[in-house]
Nucleic acid binder design. Structure first.
Lengths: 259, 259
DNA sequence: TAATAAATGTCGTTT
DNA sequence: AAACGACGTTTATTA
């Protein structure tokens, strides 16, 4: 262990040395990384057996465990936060049991060989911001149509999100049919053409006037000219703004519920 | 790098050294672990920003990426298999971009400080066996009622899985009403009492004889006596066996489909 | 390629 | 505690 870092990193440690470091690391709520040959057994809602092979085990201070093979996005085995641990040294290797009493789930990992052991003291207080997806922008406009423009009335069925290809369809304050295409990134010429395609579909079987509005945080360079020539409109709106509106609406509905 | 192991492990490497090792490791399809202070930006179906903090980045040979904070089960940011990489050394640190062109998703990780770097060559060919859950055992008996006993006929609606509290209900070869309670683990006294509860519910509004069968891989010690005194029955059956039956059935139905 | 269903889904909120 | 819905769901299966 290097002084000042508070972390332990061992390459090809003996099982005995690894055992001590892992047990110590877990009890002190450090983040433990183990890489090497292991077998894994899970018993709970289902049960599983993973024959020996080289994987990475990640043990977090909050009691979550992840066993990762050198492929695939999801862990092959895992245990959610709140797990308890028992570490032991056995004849077949270093054994770590992660279990949740309440859920009656047990995860057993047995390392017969360890190529890397790291006990890290990770400090992570950084904020995580998740901005809304296009779907959320759609929902925001449906619950607060003035985000598009005053007087807009979307056609809504029971469900807040309409199926189909057109993001939103409705009528404006003058009862003019209005088709809305939403992009969460600067709208390109492609986005304009996409909207035009929907416009064509409606214009073909209707002689009524139809408005087409492209909603996006901004309009990309080449798109502006095309938009104007096709007599389409642009409404600037950011996913962030939509996220705020949705959040406020949810808080409001909660307030209404309690009053 | 230790000869014979084919792996690189560096503690507190310089960003320059880390850059070379990471770029090399990714291009050679090794498993790369990075731990240290980083910021993460994601842009795709949604967008996210993760302010600086200490995390673990896992880059797999199949092109999947996982960014793990020292808490929580799911990764805070990720990229599924098939991602492409661009690694670069910038003024603000070691930058790794994982992107998927088709899905138009980009993940950017920038390490300003690295406490651990590991480039591993994990060999993992071990088989993974997932045995059935209780629900799967239920389905196995419904598609192959002889698993319970010859002549058993479960009441089945359109769907193979019946809703409700009783696992399976049906009639035996003599047309006697039969209630089945399934446990995927050794059945305890509680399981016996649970079955008895369902029996009582049926006995109360019916004078017909009713059989109660407890299905489980084995009968726990204390349960055997209770079972006998309540005149209930036990049928040994393992989740593994059910999984095999289901697999065979699926293969058969596939064969029938093609002939 | 698109639609559907399952997952040891997980994780939150609401009842 | 149970139920319901969302998720950058992911994943496999099927039309």
């Amino acid at each position: 262990m290097r002084p000042g870092t508070g972390q332990i990193i061992m390459e090809q440690p003996s099982l005995e040395a690894a055992f001590k470091a892992v047990r110590n690391g877990i009890s002190r709520h450090k983040t433990v990384i183990l890489a090497g040959n292991c077998r894994v057994d899970y018993e709970g809602r289902a049960s599983s057996k993973l024959d020996p092979g080289e994987r990475i085990a990640l043990i977090k201070p909050d009691g979550s465990v992840l066993i990762h093979r050198p492929r695939d996005y999801p862990p092959v085995n895992w245990q959610p936060p709140g797990s308890l641990f028992k570490t032991s040294l056995r004849v077949d290797g270093l054994h770590v049991r992660a279990f949740r009493k309440k859920e009656r789930e047990v995860l057993d990992v047995t390392f017969s060989e360890i190529s890397l052991l790291a006990v890290l003291d990770l400090k992570d207080t950084g904020e995580f911001y998740l901005y809304a997806s296009e779907k959320d922008m759609q929902e925001a406009i449906l619950v607060e149509p003035s985000l598009l423009e005053e007087g807009f009335k979307p056609f809504t069925s029971e469900r807040p999100v309409e199926p189909g290809f057109i993001d939103i369809i409705g009528v404006d304050r003058d009862n003019v049919l209005t088709i809305v295409e939403i992009k969460r990134k600067p709208a390109t010429r492609d986005a304009v053409l996409q909207l035009q395609k929907y416009m064509d579909a409606y214009a073909s079987d209707s002689s009524r006037r139809v408005r087409g509005i492209l909603v996006a945080p901004e309009l990309a360079r080449g798109a502006q000219k095309l938009l104007a020539s096709l007599r389409l409109e642009f409404k600037p709106l950011t996913p962030q703004r939509c996220a705020e509106v949705l959040k406020r609406k949810r808080e409001k509905s909660l307030t209404d519920f309690f009053k």
